[in-house]
Structures are given as C-alpha cells and as structure tokens.
Design a protein around this nucleic acid. Structure first.
Lengths: 134, 134
DNA sequence: TTGTACTGTAATAAAAAACATTACAATTAA
DNA sequence: TTAATTGTAATGTTTTTTATTACAGTACAA
C-alpha cells in the first residue's frame, strides 16, 4: 500500500475545515510531502468531482459539495487500484489444476472483501470525520 | 500491496488438496515464483502454526490442523503489516492543528476497516475455499 | 500591461520496497 | 554416504513510490 489515501484524507480534512480556497503549497506544508504529489492527488480529486479548483492569483481548491454528502467510501474509490488483498506479479502455472483456477477464486474473494470495506467506509461522511478534530 | 496473501492462499490451497507432504520446489512451480520466496512464506505459516514441516529427504510441508478449522482471517493475519488503508512516509506538520491529530484519527479508521475485513474473511474457512475448485 | 501568485503537468531522479538468485549449512531417508 | 530436502543469509535486480526541476497557462491587481 502507498500513501495516497492518507494524503487525500488529509487534503479533504483541510478543505473541510477551511473557510476559503487553499493552495496546494499550503496543504503540502501541512501534510509534509512534495507539492507536486499533492497537486497530483488534487487533480485526481477534481477528476472524481470531490473538489473544484480556481486558477491564477488567489486560486486554490475547495470542496465541490457539502462535507455531509461526501462519504469516505467515495474518497477511497477515487484512489483504489488493483486488489485489496494484494496481487502476485507472476501468473500461476496453468498446467496445475490449482494454478489454473486460483486467480479467479482469489479475485472473487477480493471483491467480497472490498465490498465489506466500502460498506464500512460508507457509514461515515467527511463532516463526521472532521468533527473528531478539536 | 504485495503478493504475499495470494502466495499464502496458493500454498494453503495446494496443501489442502494434497494427500501427502509437498516440497517448496513443487509449490514454487505451481505458483510460479522463486522457491526462496515460497520458503519464506512457508516459514511464516509455520511461525503462525498453520502448517508444519518435515526436514530431510522426502521432507516437505503439510497443514497443521483440519482445513475446516483454518479461517481465511487467520491466514490474512499471518501476513498483515501496517495499515490496510495505506500509510504516508512523512509525518504531518505538528504545527498544523489538522496535521497534529490526523494520524490518530486515520489509525482509528484503519482499525475499524481492518476489523470489517477480518469479520468478512472469518466467515470462510480453507476447506470451503478449496471446495470452489473443480 | 506587467509582475506575482497560483494551477496543471511533463520529465527526470532518487529512494524504498518487492522479488529473484546464489550459496550453503543442517537434516533425514534409502 | 549420497541425494533430496528444509532453512536462511547475503546480494542483486526490478518495480514502485516519492521527490525534484522545470515551465506553460491563468487571473488578479497595481
């Protein structure tokens, strides 16, 4: 796993608690990662319509809708890639009866588990998450 | 995520369907990864008491208990490391009120989600998983 | 109309993680 | 006593992740 979800959650929390547009450099300073990496996540969040941006001087980013209608599942969905339970690089041996079928069965299992995660993430929205902060 | 869970599931499935000890080289051939990597996972499974080994000629590996009493959650537990939802390398800025607290809140969230995954994985045992194979 | 503060993105480099390979000691059956 | 095997350390290669540099485009404001 990489740090994309924590970074996106950090971005969304900052935007949720801010009362004006925030710049990528400001957010990078709070998260403490490279500003370009933050801007890549911001691009991704825009693509998924969770935030909007304003270019030029005094530009920045803001939530595209009320925090109460942004579920943590939708944030997770925006970064999800591959299998939650991991995936091996190599194809199992197709000459082996187990090897031939296991990827399908593991994929089914992965889908089930991912659904359970999403269900749980879907029970909390961004506003509720931000309320945990003093 | 890495390929450890798929590899361990593959190992456990092979051992579940075999009626004698299997060697690490045979299993590596079915999984199609380096034998040393397989032996590392086998070591780990032994450490977690899910399998046992026999050294020397005609040695190999076998399940340490009936497949019906090995839950997929216990296999997952043996490889789990860090956060399911990922973790950033850098510490957030402690001078920022959000940065100061976010790791704790993300950790709580991660624990909740991991528990949901484990609950779901706990509903299936190895024998049931292996029954899916023709 | 020009400077400044931003977004947006491409290209490249560095660091870290994952995986492969080689090597060999220890064990045990035949 | 030979051959097949586990167990593990050390090292190398490849892939992924993160950081850095660079710069074009946009918009505000003096």
């Amino acid at each position: 796993m990489n740090g994309r979800f924590p970074i996106e959650m950090h971005i969304m929390t900052l935007l949720c608690t801010a009362d004006d547009y925030l710049s990528s450099d400001y957010m990078a300073g709070s998260i403490n990662v490279n500003p370009v990496l933050v801007r890549k996540e911001l691009s991704n969040l825009i693509k998924h319509q969770l935030i909007t941006s304003r270019e030029g001087k005094n530009g920045g980013y803001t939530l595209s809708k009320p925090a109460t209608s942004i579920s943590l599942a939708s944030i997770y969905q925006s970064i999800k890639q591959g299998n939650v339970l991991g995936q091996a690089k190599n194809q199992p041996n197709p000459a082996c009866p187990i090897g031939k079928q296991i990827n399908n069965h593991l994929k089914d299992l992965d889908n089930e588990i991912e659904q359970a995660m999403l269900n749980k993430l879907g029970t909390t929205n961004l506003a509720e998450f931000c309320n945990k902060f003093d």
